[in-house]
């Protein structure tokens, strides 16, 4: 009943005029926008959109460009390499290379590891009471730790990781390999430069970066490499070599037998989980 009353009380002339005005205004603006979009048409490279859809679109910023669309633009402009995005899967990298018309030579998938296992086992030089940021602390005579390349455990890498893959355990940063996508944000954040990418297929990594001599290392850190060279002598595959008092693994030769890991007296060679 109410509906009928309402309907009869509507001034239909006004409704029609209102509709006509809205219709007229919309037609005028539709025409105007159509004309202007033709006049001011910008030629966009379709490859940018295609490459953007192949990138992870996580916009983590690990490549150094503003988001995935920014990187796609840089790839098209030739400023960035095809594999600038470390977390992009191989199949998509090949597709990107096809779009750009260049050949793609592999580039293995990687993950990040922290080359330090010191933490609370590493002695402190002084007590730090400043701003909680690795960079600020490293300005103060190279950080709190005795070891020049020791993780201070302040956790700038933890803050930098958009995937929550890094955490500080017992005073040292540890990368959770199941969560890491190798975006590279932690590598950029670390002032000590002890986070590095290694191939995803790797079984072991070196948990120390100290280039000091054995005696100096024993004074500073209970978990540091003393450069004894047992790993080099143990390895039957010529995959591990001492360079500047710290072992370096050649992952193309390492088969993951873990014999060096078992022999290492300081437990510096660690297993990847």
């Amino acid at each position: 009943m109410n509906c009928f009353l309402l309907a009869s009380s509507v001034n239909w002339t006004t409704v029609w005029i209102a509709l006509a005005i809205m219709f007229g205004v919309s037609i005028v603006f539709a025409l105007l926008i159509t004309v202007i979009s033709k006049v001011f048409a910008v030629k966009t490279d379709t490859r940018v959109e295609e490459i953007t859809s192949l990138l992870p679109n996580a916009n983590c910023g690990g490549c150094g460009y503003p988001g995935c669309a920014g990187l796609a633009q840089a790839i098209v402009d030739g400023k960035a390499p095809i594999d600038a995005c470390a977390q992009c899967v191989k199949a998509n990298r090949i597709k990107i290379a096809n779009i750009m018309g260049v050949s793609f030579e592999g580039g293995e998938e990687t993950i990040a590891v922290v080359h330090c296992t010191g933490g609370i086992k590493c002695e402190d030089k002084y007590e730090y009471n400043g701003y909680g940021d690795c960079k600020s602390q490293s300005i103060m005579s190279g950080g709190r730790k005795m070891c020049e390349v020791g993780c201070m455990g302040v956790g700038s890498c933890v803050d930098a990781c958009p995937y929550y893959a890094v955490e500080v355990k017992e005073g040292v940063a540890v990368v959770d390999q199941s969560l890491c996508v190798s975006c590279g944000n932690c590598i950029l954040a670390c002032p000590k430069k002890i986070i590095e990418r290694i191939p995803k297929s790797a079984k072991i990594y070196i948990g120390c970066s100290s280039r000091c001599k054995g005696k100096d290392v024993t004074l500073m850190c209970k978990s540091g490499c003393i450069g004894c060279g047992i790993c080099q002598r143990t390895c039957k595959h010529d995959a591990i070599h001492l360079q500047n008092n710290v072992p370096v693994i050649d992952y193309s030769k390492c088969i993951g037998c873990k014999e060096c890991m078992a022999k290492c007296p300081r437990h510096v060679i660690r297993e990847l989980k």
């Binding site: 926008i33 202007i36 001011f40």
Partner: peptide, 13 residues
């Protein structure tokens, strides 16, 4: 309506 259309135009320009 007018403002939305104008912004569209300004954006294109």
């Amino acid at each position: 309506f007018v403002i939305a259309a104008l912004v569209q135009i300004v954006e294109m320009i």
